[in-house]
Structure formats: structure tokens, C-alpha cells
């Protein structure tokens, strides 16, 4: 009986002690738990391998100049003269044309459901949606839009590392893996096969469609870029971190 009486407070004390230890371990020196939390490392996107930072920063400045002085005025004119539905239709049309890229990227990752959805969407949008200008597939059960896959994501899913971070002239942020993926995308895209542009007699046509596709896609990109630039202490660093996190998330999904 005596032992029992002695044990009870001892057990409570142990429990309280255990809880206090959890609290104390979270503290760093004299820091309160809240302070220690503020100083903890963040994992996502913090570590981007950027050995060519000085060159990349220079290319970033170049792209910024081109965006602000050439592409933005073009895009502003395009959005001003194009009614919103037409603008959206053009964007849908070029997105629909990239179906082979999305199909192959889904299949290469064994994402058969994704391949099926993309195929269904392409079939519906290309026919009922007037060559992809409209997206009636959105309303069909099981064919709601899914996230686009590309060859860079395929390489990521296969376990290939990102490699160094790169800023490409005119194209913006990338890394070695996504640059290789970019050429893969182009070889699968019926409009943008790069090597044929050199000798192909139809290069003017390909350039015109590529340029139109670029402009049709640009309003959203420009808007996001302007937002990023307006809210960033260091736009280069912000874009690098944002790109790395976004791509890592896309590969992980």
C-alpha cells in the first residue's frame, strides 16, 4: 500500500517530466520555442544548384529587357485588339496541338489514366470544340482538365537529377534536365521540330505558327512575371526558387 502511494505521484511526475522534455528539446540555447521556430531551416526550393549564377543573372537581365521592350508591347497590342473569347480560343487551340507531347509524357511515366484523359479531351475538343478552339471536354464526366505533363517531368520521374539551374535566352528559367526535356517536347510537337526548320522549305510557316503560339501563350506568362517582379526583393532569386519548387512539385505529383 505504501509503495502504491509512493508510485502514484512518481508516475505523474514522470509524465509531466516527459512533456517538459519535448518542450525543452525544441529550444535552441536560450531561444523560446517560437523563436527557434522562426530560425528553423525551410526545405522546399531553398537549395538550388546554381553554379552559373553570374551568367544566369546576366541572361535574366537580358530577358527582362526583351520582355519589357519587345514582347510586352506586342502582347499588349495583341490583348487590346483581340476580344477575350478569341484570345482564349487561340490559347486553347495551341494547347490542343501539344497533345502528342502530353500523351507521350503520360505514357512514358506509365500514367495510363492521364493518357486516356488527354486522348479523350483531344478527341472531343478537336471535333465538337472546332479544332480545339473551344473546350467542351471540360463538361464531360471523366475528362476534366488535368495537369499537363512534359518530357522534363518524365526525366524527373525516371530519377534523373535536375542538374544546374539555367536561364535560357528568350525562354527563361530551366535546368539541364528540363533543357533536354525541352528538345524532347519539340521533337514530339508537330509544329516545332527544330532540325527540320533548317532545310525545310516550310520554315516560314513553322516560324509563323511558333511565333503566334508564343504570343497567344504570353499574356498569362507576362502577367505572372509582372506580379513576381513587383513583389520580389530579388526577382532573379524569386524566379529561381519558384521555378525549382514548381517543377519539383510537378515531378512528385
Amino acid at each position: 500500500m505504501k509503495t502504491q502511494k509512493f508510485k502514484r505521484p512518481l508516475a505523474w511526475a514522470s509524465l509531466i517530466g516527459l512533456l517538459s522534455v519535448t518542450n525543452l528539446t525544441a529550444q535552441d540555447g536560450n531561444l523560446t520555442e517560437d523563436e527557434a521556430f522562426f530560425y528553423e531551416e525551410v526545405d522546399e526550393g531553398a537549395d538550388v544548384y546554381d553554379p552559373f549564377e553570374s551568367v544566369n543573372r546576366f541572361t535574366f537581365e537580358f530577358n527582362d529587357f526583351v520582355f519589357s521592350n519587345t514582347i510586352q508591347p506586342l502582347v499588349d497590342a495583341y490583348t487590346a485588339i483581340t476580344p477575350d473569347p478569341l484570345e482564349e480560343g487561340a490559347s486553347n487551340f495551341f494547347h490542343n496541338l501539344r497533345y502528342p507531347v502530353r500523351l507521350a509524357s503520360n505514357l512514358l511515366q506509365c500514367r495510363f489514366k492521364g493518357a486516356w484523359v488527354e486522348t479523350g479531351r483531344f478527341a472531343i475538343n478537336s471535333t465538337v470544340g472546332f479544332v480545339g478552339i473551344l473546350t467542351p471536354a471540360d463538361d464531360y464526366e471523366g475528362f476534366a482538365p488535368i495537369k499537363s505533363e512534359d518530357v522534363g517531368q518524365v526525366f524527373g520521374a525516371w530519377g534523373i537529377g535536375e542538374g544546374p539551374y539555367l536561364v535560357l535566352p528568350f525562354l527563361g528559367p530551366s535546368n539541364l534536365r528540363d533543357l533536354a526535356g525541352f528538345f524532347g517536347d519539340r521533337s514530339l510537337n508537330p509544329l516545332k521540330e527544330p532540325l527540320s526548320m533548317i532545310d525545310d522549305w516550310e520554315w516560314e510557316w513553322q516560324l509563323a505558327t511558333s511565333g503566334t503560339g508564343y504570343i497567344a501563350r504570353s499574356p498569362q506568362i507576362i502577367e505572372r512575371y509582372k506580379q513576381l517582379k513587383g513583389s520580389s526583393i530579388d526577382p532573379y532569386s524569386s524566379l529561381r526558387s519558384g521555378y525549382a519548387q514548381y517543377r519539383r512539385g510537378a515531378v512528385a505529383e
Binding site: 525551410v42 526545405d43 522546399e44 526550393g45 531553398a46 538550388v48 520580389s232 526583393i233 530579388d234 532569386s237 524569386s238 529561381r240 526558387s241 519558384g242 519548387q245 514548381y246 519539383r248 512539385g249 510537378a250
Partner: peptide, 13 residues
């Protein structure tokens, strides 16, 4: 969309 605001600003700062 997978981009952490805190992590993005931490990198910049």
C-alpha cells in the same frame, strides 16, 4: 501550386 511563399522569400532574403 507547389510554390511556398515563405520559402521563396527566405531564398531572396
Amino acid at each position: 501550386e507547389n510554390v511556398s511563399v515563405s520559402s521563396n522569400y527566405r531564398g531572396q532574403i
